[in-house]
C-alpha cells in the first residue's frame, strides 16, 4: 500500500457504479483476512476437540516426552525437539554461508558477476521442496554415512534433513541479506574508507552493523521457513517420534508427523485427526510469532538515512 500523492479530483463524490466497483475490490481484499481468520478458527476449534479428549491433558501435551497415540501418550516434546534440531542445523549452515554470499554480492562482486549469480540463486530458490527432499535422501544421507560411518548415521536422520533445509533457505537468506546490505547508503562506506579502514573493516564494522535490522529480520524469516518446512523432513528425517539429541538418529518433526498421519486415511473426529490440528496450531503460533517479530525488528531498528 503506497500513499499516492494524487487523488481523483472528484474525491469520494463518485458515480454509483464506481462505488460498487470499489466495494467489490474491497471485499476481495477482505478475503485474505478471512483466510487468516479461517486458519485460526479451524486450528483452535479442532485443537479444542483434541484437548477435550479424556486421554489428553494440556500439561501432558507440553511436558510429555513420549508421543504414542496408540497407548494414549500425547507429549509433543519429541516432535518439537526434532523440529528444533533440524531448524538449528539448517540455520547454523545457512546463516554464515548466506551472509557471506550476500556480502560478496553486495560489496565485492562486479555488476557483471552479480548479474550472472543472482539468476542462479533465483533458480535455486524456485526448485520445489520435494526435489530437495529427494536430494537429502539420495545424496546427503549417503554422503553423511560415508563420512561418519554406516553405524553412527541412520538411514533416516535429522542432520541430513537439517543440512538440506539449510541449502533450501540459503538463496532466500542470500538475496534478502543482499538487499539489506545494499540499502546501507554509500556515504557510510566512503566515510569508513576515508578513516583508513580496509574494505573488510568497513564491511564488518560499518556496513554490517548498519544493516543489522534487515539482517536479523531475514534470519528470523528464514528460521520460520525452516520450522515450517515439510517435504524434506518427511522424506529424510524419519517416521516415528523419537526423543533424541543425536542428529544422526531418526526423529519425526511436527510437520513430518502431520504429513504422515494425514497421508494415511484418518477418520474424522478421531484423536489422530484432531491431533494434527493441535500440532498445526503450535506450528502456526511459532511461525506467526517469528514473522511478526521479524517485521517488528526491521521497522524498530530501521534507521532513516539522509
Amino acid at each position: 500500500m503506497t500513499q499516492r500523492s494524487i487523488t481523483h479530483p472528484f474525491g469520494k463524490k463518485r458515480r454509483l457504479h464506481e462505488r460498487v466497483i470499489e466495494t467489490i475490490l474491497f471485499l476481495f481484499a477482505l478475503f485474505s483476512i478471512m483466510i487468516t481468520v479461517g486458519i485460526a478458527v479451524i486450528l483452535i476449534r479442532e485443537s479444542f476437540l483434541f484437548f477435550s479428549t479424556p486421554e489428553v491433558t494440556l500439561v501432558g501435551f507440553f511436558t510429555g516426552k513420549t508421543w504414542q497415540p496408540m497407548i494414549d501418550m500425547f507429549g509433543f516434546l519429541p516432535l518439537l525437539n526434532a523440529t528444533i534440531t533440524t531448524s538449528v542445523i539448517a540455520m547454523l549452515f545457512a546463516i554464515p554461508l548466506g551472509l557471506f554470499v550476500a556480502i560478496y554480492l553486495a560489496e565485492y562482486a562486479t555488476d557483471k558477476v552479480r548479474g550472472r549469480l543472482k539468476p542462479i540463486l533465483e533458480v535455486l530458490a524456485g526448485i520445489p521442496t520435494i526435489v530437495y527432499g529427494y536430494f537429502a535422501l539420495t545424496f546427503m544421507t549417503p554422503l553423511l554415512r560415508s563420512i561418519f560411518g554406516q553405524e553412527t548415521v541412520e538411514i533416516y536422520n535429522t542432520a541430513s534433513a537439517g543440512l538440506v533445509i539449510g541449502i533450501l533457505v540459503l538463496p532466500m537468506i542470500a538475496t534478502m541479506a543482499e538487499d539489506a546490505i545494499s540499502a546501507v547508503p554509500k556515504e557510510l562506506r566512503l566515510a569508513g574508507l576515508a578513516l583508513g579502514g580496509t574494505p573488510i573493516e568497513t564491511t564488518f564494522r560499518v556496513v554490517i552493523p548498519a544493516a543489522l535490522s534487515g539482517l536479523s529480520a531475514t534470519f528470523l524469516l528464514a528460521l520460520s521457513r525452516a520450522i515450517g518446512e515439510t517435504m524434506i523432513v518427511a522424506l529424510a528425517a524419519g517416521a516415528g517420534p523419537n526423543m533424541t539429541f543425536n542428529p544422526f538418529e531418526a526423529a519425526e518433526t511436527i510437520t513430518g508427523y502431520i504429513v504422515r498421519i494425514s497421508g494415511g486415511d484418518v477418520s474424522y473426529n478421531s484423536v489422530d485427526y484432531n491431533s494434527i490440528f493441535a500440532l498445526g496450531l503450535v506450528l502456526f503460533i511459532i511461525t506467526f510469532t517469528l514473522n511478526l517479530i521479524s517485521r517488528k525488528v526491521s521497522s524498530l531498528f530501521y534507521q532513516e538515512y539522509e
Binding site: 486450528l43 515450517g228 510437520t255 502456526f284
Partner: peptide, 12 residues
C-alpha cells in the same frame, strides 16, 4: 504474514 505461513497449514 499470510505469505510466510507454512504451506502445510494451508493443507489443514
Amino acid at each position: 504474514n499470510l505469505s510466510a505461513v507454512p504451506s502445510i497449514i494451508y493443507g489443514l
